[in-house]
């Protein structure tokens, strides 16, 4: 069948807040019983918080959305995913997919949140192995009391690794 040209992307703009958030949207686990809290901040190339981003966290049956607040902060509750099959018989370390939409992003950005304390699984992960070693930490959350911390730097120093879509 003939290929259909995909419809191009456009920015989510600044004014989605009355339309895309929904009740309980930051809880990823279907039961609402997620034991993990993931929090962080979205920062631009000047280190300024991005107050109008929309994030989607997902893996398997888990799906959540969170709009950043005026400080660029977001949070999710979720359940830790299991390792999953990767290419060539490898095993992927547990991770979440994270999609970032914002004013000023003409297309979404796609990244992953890996877990601290999974040193062996992370070292064997096919995707992490393809990331320059000095940039790998941008994909691994930090353990903080009561939460995992995952900041997103859109540009410049410490820029988060994003995957081509």
């Amino acid at each position: 069948m003939a290929r259909t040209a995909p419809t191009p992307s456009q920015t989510v703009g600044p004014f989605f807040g009355f339309a895309l958030p929904f009740a309980g949207d930051s809880e990823a686990a279907p039961s609402g019983q997620g034991e993990l809290r993931i929090e962080g901040q979205v920062l631009d190339g000047a280190g300024t918080p991005v107050p109008d981003a929309l994030l989607e966290l997902w893996q398997g049956e888990q799906f959540a959305r969170c709009a950043t607040d005026p400080e660029g902060a977001f949070h999710f509750t979720a359940s830790k995913p299991a390792p999953m099959p990767g290419p060539g018989g490898t095993v992927q370390a547990p991770h979440f997919n994270l999609t970032i939409f914002a004013r000023g992003l003409l297309r979404q950005l796609q990244t992953r949140i890996y877990f601290p304390g999974e040193t062996a699984a992370n070292s064997a992960d096919w995707v992490l192995a393809r990331v320059e070693p000095e940039r790998r930490p941008t994909l691994i959350a930090r353990a903080e009391p009561g939460a995992l911390r995952f900041d997103i730097r859109l540009q410049g120093e410490g820029e988060t690794v994003f995957f081509a879509l």
């Binding site: 190339g45 000047a46 000023g104 393809r130 940039r135 540009q155 988060t160 690794v161 994003f162």
Partner: peptide, 10 residues
């Protein structure tokens, strides 16, 4: 200008 990633996407 301040939100586009600079590094090539993987």
């Amino acid at each position: 200008i301040l939100r586009a990633p600079r590094a090539a996407l993987l």
